[in-house]
Design a binder for these strands. Sequence first.
DNA 1: CCTAATGTCTCTAGTGACTGGAGGTTCAAG
DNA 2: CTTGAACCTCCAGTCACTAGAGACATTAGG
Lengths: 145, 145
Amino acid sequence: MMTIGKLGRAAGVKVPTIRYYEDIGLLPEAERSAGNQRLYPDSMLSRLCFIRHARELGFPLDAIRDLLRLAAHPDQPCEAADQIAGEQLAAVRARIGQLKALEGELARMVASGAHGTVGECRVIEVLGNHALCARDHGAGAGVFA
Amino acid sequence: MMTIGKLGRAAGVKVPTIRYYEDIGLLPEAERSAGNQRLYPDSMLSRLCFIRHARELGFPLDAIRDLLRLAAHPDQPCEAADQIAGEQLAAVRARIGQLKALEGELARMVASGAHGTVGECRVIEVLGNHALCARDHGAGAGVFA
DNA sequence: CCTAATGTCTCTAGTGACTGGAGGTTCAAG
DNA sequence: CTTGAACCTCCAGTCACTAGAGACATTAGG
């Protein structure tokens, strides 16, 4: 049996975060010592590590909740786990795509190098450029020729 | 002068978001009609578009606040704007790097394909793998050989 | 056995950037 | 004049924590 601090250090998770996980039901309510301090069995370390890894991979807590439920039933088919991971992979790939587009735009902004004044500043200019304000007010607003 | 709904549609920003921007001081307090409804001059559209573009590029609102202040003084040197954009670019690149690592790990998890049961499921297995729980409890916990 | 330092407890509130709803008022069209 | 959309304020919720206040518990050293 270990205290919350030891558990946190072992798993690489901060103490308030563990209490938060208990609050939201991701970890079961811990046993308590005579002095009302939480005490965890070693098995909690695995569970918490599982959660940490999943968080590092960007899984939202709701998905982790599902994964934990699945992990508790090793005899059942694992399609659901595959699906969750697949969705996460798709989300990550989509985000990478978006960020690469942004990177390109930012790089162009910055690349123009040192200009004198804000008036000539490409950063400000690009951000203020109405032509980029594309999506919806091209139709009637008269901004587009 | 336009109402908040028109402004929102023109800029591609939802109405409550505009009110939120006013709350936090990113937009000035709007004039009001006789019936207490917000009225905006056309210049507000540029400002809001500026904000939207910057948000799409991932700038945090605080950075946008700074950029707006800068944009208001076209005669001053624009080093500050360049620096903000440079920081944002660095942040985006760092995030892309992280996400690519995650993508690799997720892809490997998912790639193993259809297994029968959760017991053999690579997704669950990888997440529960103590060896990945590397950072801090390799020292004394005995998990590492 | 006492003390000091550290660890833990609960509770509340804050973060960022919105989003949504309730319950009420105002406006424009027919 | 009535209907329905758009607007108003205020409050609460989202996600995943993080920080702080003020009090109790535990542990190591003297």
